[in-house]
């Protein structure tokens, strides 16, 4: 049904887990553990330890991020922290400070 959205005027401090897609316009602090994707929208801010299938950063992320499939930082995205992922895409204009560790999986 409805995908999970943290609206602009909402703040969550704690642990969010689940299988859906999580879309953040507001503020999320703590831990995000998703089987689905995490999208941090332009007006979104995530200060958390994140693990998700794909992580799409258009807003701001501070923390340790694991994207099992990929991590994508859009031109307006800002990411501070370490990234661990299979694939990473950083667009021109994006801000990133941290380490990148790519797990190369043997087929």
């Amino acid at each position: 049904m409805s995908e999970t959205t943290v609206g602009t005027k909402t703040r969550i401090n704690g642990r969010i887990s689940g299988t859906d897609r999580l879309c953040v316009h507001g503020l999320v602090e703590g831990e995000v553990a998703m089987e689905g994707d995490l999208v941090v929208e332009a007006d979104g801010r995530v200060e958390a330890t994140v693990s998700a299938r794909a992580v799409n950063i258009r807003g701001t992320v501070n923390g340790e991020v694991t994207g099992r499939d990929k991590v994508e930082i859009a031109p307006d995205g800002r990411m501070i922290g370490d990234v661990r992922t299979g694939r990473i895409l950083i667009s021109d204009g994006a801000v990133f400070k941290g380490r990148v560790e790519m797990d190369v999986r043997e087929g």
């Binding site: 999970t4 005027k9 689940g18």
Partner: peptide, 14 residues
């Protein structure tokens, strides 16, 4: 404005 979907668990403060 905000929706916690069916397959999501939030533990903490909102």
């Amino acid at each position: 404005g905000a929706v916690i979907g069916r397959n999501i668990v939030v533990r903490g403060e909102i």
